[in-house]
Amino acid sequence: EALLLQRRRVTVRKADAGGLGISIKGGRENKMPILISKIFKGLAADQTEALFVGDAILSVNGEDLSSATHDEAVQVLKKTGKEVVLEVKYMKD
């Protein structure tokens, strides 16, 4: 459990079709971090076996998301290339 509370760096390699394969919720306007709300089976994020629903995305390719709005986070995630480095931390409810 202590492991979950540490920052983790996960590299996601996207397939030619399909994006990261995650849905996010939260954002500055909700006074919440950007959280992974869904991981789609078989897509890139799922294949890492290292990302979990409830993980907060702290940064994407080094771009800090700690004070991002939901829309800003969506845009940052959309413009990523084939390889995406996510810094995440599991957030307890």
Rank of each mutant, 00 (worst) to 15 (best):
Glu1His: 05
Glu1Val: 06
Glu1Asp: 06
Glu1Thr: 08
Glu1Pro: 06
Glu1Met: 09
Glu1Trp: 06
Glu1Cys: 07
Ala2Gly: 14
Ala2His: 15
Ala2Pro: 08
Ala2Ser: 13
Leu3Cys: 07
Leu3Phe: 13
Leu3Ser: 12
Leu3Lys: 10
Leu3Glu: 09
Leu3Thr: 05
Leu4Phe: 13
Leu4Thr: 09
Leu4Arg: 10
Arg8Cys: 01
Arg8Met: 02
Arg8Leu: 00
Arg8Asn: 01
Arg8Ala: 02
Arg9Asn: 11
Arg9His: 13
Arg9Glu: 07
Arg9Thr: 15
Arg9Lys: 14
Arg9Gln: 14
Val10Gly: 03
Val10Asn: 04
Thr11Gly: 04
Val12Lys: 03
Val12Asn: 02
Val12Thr: 02
Arg13Ala: 08
Arg13Gln: 12
Arg13Pro: 08
Arg13His: 15
Arg13Asn: 12
Lys14Met: 05
Lys14His: 11
Ala15His: 11
Asp16Glu: 15
Asp16Tyr: 09
Asp16Thr: 09
Asp16Ala: 13
Ala17Pro: 13
Ala17Tyr: 12
Ala17Ile: 14
Ala17Gly: 10
Ala17Thr: 14
Gly18His: 14
Gly18Pro: 09
Gly18Asn: 12
Leu20Gly: 02
Gly21Asp: 01
Gly21Gln: 01
Gly21Tyr: 00
Ile22Ser: 00
Ile22Gln: 01
Ile22Asn: 00
Ile22Arg: 01
Ile22Gly: 04
Ser23Gln: 14
Ser23His: 12
Ser23Tyr: 07
Ile24Ala: 00
Ile24Pro: 01
Ile24Thr: 07
Ile24Gln: 01
Ile24Val: 10
Lys25Val: 14
Lys25Cys: 13
Lys25Glu: 15
Lys25Asp: 12
Lys25Ile: 12
Lys25Ala: 15
Gly26Ser: 01
Gly26Arg: 00
Gly26Lys: 02
Gly27His: 02
Gly27Cys: 03
Gly27Arg: 04
Gly27Val: 03
Asn30Ser: 12
Met32Ser: 15
Met32Leu: 07
Ile34Trp: 00
Ile34Gln: 00
Ile34His: 04
Ile34Met: 01
Ile34Ala: 00
Ile34Ser: 01
Ile34Val: 08
Leu35Arg: 07
Ile36Tyr: 03
Ile36Val: 08
Ile36Asp: 04
Ile36Ala: 02
Ser37His: 11
Ser37Lys: 11
Ser37Tyr: 10
Ser37Thr: 13
Ser37Arg: 07
Lys38Tyr: 13
Lys38Asn: 13
Lys38Ala: 12
Ile39Ser: 03
Ile39Met: 05
Ile39Gln: 03
Ile39Asp: 03
Ile39Arg: 02
Ile39Tyr: 02
Ile39Lys: 04
Phe40Asp: 15
Phe40Leu: 10
Phe40Thr: 15
Phe40Glu: 12
Phe40Asn: 12
Phe40Arg: 14
Lys41Asn: 15
Gly42Cys: 07
Gly42Ser: 08
Gly42Val: 08
Leu43Phe: 07
Ala45Tyr: 05
Ala45Met: 05
Ala45Asn: 06
Ala45Cys: 10
Asp46Val: 03
Asp46Pro: 05
Asp46Ile: 02
Gln47Asp: 09
Gln47Thr: 12
Gln47Asn: 13
Gln47Leu: 14
Gln47Ile: 08
Thr48Trp: 01
Thr48Tyr: 03
Thr48Val: 05
Thr48Pro: 06
Thr48Cys: 15
Thr48Arg: 05
Glu49Val: 06
Glu49Gln: 15
Glu49Pro: 06
Glu49Phe: 08
Ala50Glu: 09
Ala50Gln: 15
Ala50Arg: 11
Ala50Lys: 14
Leu51Asn: 03
Leu51Gln: 03
Leu51Phe: 06
Phe52Gln: 11
Phe52Asp: 05
Phe52Glu: 11
Val53Leu: 05
Val53Thr: 07
Val53Pro: 09
Val53Glu: 10
Gly54Asp: 08
Gly54Tyr: 03
Gly54Leu: 01
Gly54Ile: 03
Asp55Gly: 03
Asp55Thr: 02
Asp55Leu: 01
Asp55Lys: 03
Ala56Cys: 10
Ala56Glu: 07
Ala56Met: 09
Ala56Ile: 09
Ile57His: 00
Ile57Trp: 02
Leu58Gln: 06
Leu58Ala: 03
Leu58Tyr: 07
Ser59Met: 09
Ser59Asp: 05
Ser59Gly: 09
Ser59Asn: 08
Ser59Lys: 09
Val60Lys: 01
Val60Gln: 01
Val60Gly: 02
Val60Glu: 04
Asn61Gly: 07
Asn61Arg: 00
Gly62Asp: 11
Gly62Ala: 06
Gly62His: 06
Gly62Ile: 00
Gly62Glu: 07
Gly62Val: 04
Gly62Ser: 07
Gly62Asn: 08
Glu63Gln: 13
Glu63Met: 15
Glu63Pro: 01
Glu63Arg: 15
Glu63Ile: 15
Asp64Tyr: 04
Asp64Val: 06
Asp64Gly: 06
Asp64Arg: 05
Asp64Trp: 03
Leu65Lys: 02
Leu65Ala: 00
Leu65Gly: 00
Leu65Pro: 02
Leu65Gln: 02
Leu65Phe: 06
Leu65Met: 11
Leu65Tyr: 00
Leu65Val: 12
Ser66Lys: 09
Ser66Gln: 13
Ser67Asn: 14
Ser67Ala: 13
Ser67Trp: 10
Ser67Ile: 08
Ser67Arg: 11
Ser67His: 13
Ala68Met: 15
Ala68Pro: 00
Thr69Trp: 04
Thr69Leu: 06
Thr69Asp: 04
Thr69Gly: 06
His70Arg: 11
His70Leu: 07
His70Cys: 12
His70Tyr: 14
His70Thr: 11
His70Phe: 14
Asp71Arg: 11
Asp71Phe: 10
Glu72Trp: 06
Glu72Lys: 10
Glu72Val: 07
Glu72Cys: 05
Glu72Pro: 01
Val74Phe: 05
Thr80Ile: 13
Val84Gly: 13
Glu87Lys: 04
Val88Gln: 03
Val88Thr: 03
Lys89Pro: 02
Lys89Ser: 12
Lys89Asp: 07
Tyr90Phe: 14
Tyr90Ala: 13
Tyr90Met: 13
Met91Ser: 12
Lys92Val: 11
Asp93Pro: 12
